[in-house]
Computed example of a mutant assay.
Amino acid sequence: MEYSFIGLSHGLPKVNDNMYWKVLVSAPYMQSVIDEFRPFFKENNIEIIIPAVKERLEEADLLNLIEDIDGVICGDDRFTAKVFHKAKKLKVLAKWGTGVDSIDKVEAQKLGISVFNTPNAFTDPVADSVLAYILSFSRKVPWSTVAMRQGEWRKKPCISLKECVLGVIGVGNIGTAVIKRALSFGMKILGNDVKKIRPFGVEMVSKLNLLKKSDYISINCDLNPTSFHLIGEKEFALMKPTACIINTARGPIIEEKSLISALRQKKIAGAGLDVFEDEPLSKNSPLRKMDNCLLAPHNANSSPAAWAYVHQNTLNNLLKGLKSGRKA
């Protein structure tokens, strides 16, 4: 990977190391609007380093950049123990967004490096996206549009959401928002969560029963060691052949090879995917060619208002962590 660097050092006092901080900005969403926030960095004596990032920085990329960095505004970069041990000056990771599954939080805590995120940042746009997938499958809008453009006049069989059961795996902030939207359409809701909760309008069931009974299954749990490949060959075998699965959480929660096999063999009817095991999704992925698969490039968080809030909160978190310093 090639690196391009953009700094504010020309306007910063560099009398000694305590006078300014060096910050790596690797979050693509922040990079795209960096000019808007240059006054903030200059006012707070922060020199910014901006590497070229396609989707995220891997461990090897970070090892080449991190040694003299005080803070990072990161995306889904791979902050491993090896990276942290080379980051002798690192005080804070300010994650742009919510998910921190790509960060070794245990090692960061051992070394006194603060890790901040913005909880509940994208609940509404992600929940909207889940319903968009469900409605697309139930009302066949994408397929009807393609057929009409090809000159066909053929009425495709559809179904009302009131006739359907939605299973939500992970009834946290986003899962709850999905449920509220689905209830307004009259759907019956089944829920499954590691915590013992009883949300309004939801029948909490085992994962097995949820998979067997649901017409639509929405993945809304965190990615962690217990949810890695939570849905695989055995789980797809339990689902209805008419069921659709929707993942707007994290790609590795679904075992992608098993999903491709289930779609090919018509063990399930469809999949709506915003996230993938490896991102960006390979141009050669079979998923790109499947008519029963709706795809998006990890874009369910798209919302100007949500992004603006996360930009500001991330900067606040960065400054707080820089001023607090390393705790070890």
Rank of each mutant, 00 (worst) to 15 (best):
L12C: 06
W143S: 10
G170R: 06
C244S: 02
G191C: 01
K327S: 13
G99S: 15
C293K: 11
L93G: 00
K195Q: 07
L190F: 04
N16I: 11
N317V: 12
S114V: 12
C244T: 02
K196T: 07
K156L: 15
V168P: 01
W153D: 04
I246W: 04
E67R: 04
V146F: 00
L131K: 06
S9V: 03
D104L: 13
E107W: 13
L230K: 09
K283V: 01
W153P: 00
I113S: 07
S138L: 09
P304Q: 14
R56E: 07
W96A: 04
K283Y: 07
L223D: 12
E203C: 00
N16T: 08
C244N: 05
N301L: 12
K266Y: 08
D278W: 11
G325S: 03
W96Q: 07
I34P: 11
P119C: 04
F122V: 14
V83H: 02
Q312Y: 15
V23N: 07
C164V: 01
G325F: 14
L318V: 09
V171S: 05
A237D: 14
L183W: 05
M148C: 10
M187F: 01
V83Y: 01
Q265N: 14
H85G: 08
Y20R: 10
K323D: 05
P13M: 10
N192Y: 06
L230S: 05
K105P: 02
C164G: 03
P280E: 14
P225W: 09
E152M: 06
C244R: 05
K289C: 12
E233N: 09
Y309N: 14
K42H: 10
C158M: 13
S218N: 02
K22F: 02
K195H: 10
N316T: 12
I113A: 05
I66P: 07
A306E: 07
K283A: 13
A300D: 11
V15Q: 14
S4V: 15
W96T: 08
T248Y: 10
L90F: 02
I246V: 06
F37L: 02
L208A: 11
Q150S: 11
N209S: 06
N220C: 12
D278Y: 14
L63T: 13
R250T: 00
G191Y: 00
D291F: 04
L210T: 04
T248M: 09
F79A: 03
G201W: 03
S160V: 01
L93F: 13
I49Y: 09
H10V: 00
A182T: 03
D68A: 02
V15P: 01
P286L: 14
A269I: 07
N45T: 05
F40M: 03
A94N: 10
A296Q: 15
S160A: 02
S144M: 15
K140S: 06
A262D: 03
S26H: 05
S32L: 11
S184A: 04
R288M: 13
I268V: 12
L131Y: 09
D291C: 07
P286N: 10
I73E: 03
A305T: 15
A108Y: 07
P286W: 08
I253D: 03
K180I: 00
E36K: 09
A305I: 15
K188V: 05
G71S: 03
V165H: 01
D70E: 03
G272W: 05
D61L: 06
A121P: 10
K188C: 00
C74I: 11
I66K: 08
C293P: 12
N313R: 15
N120C: 08
G325I: 06
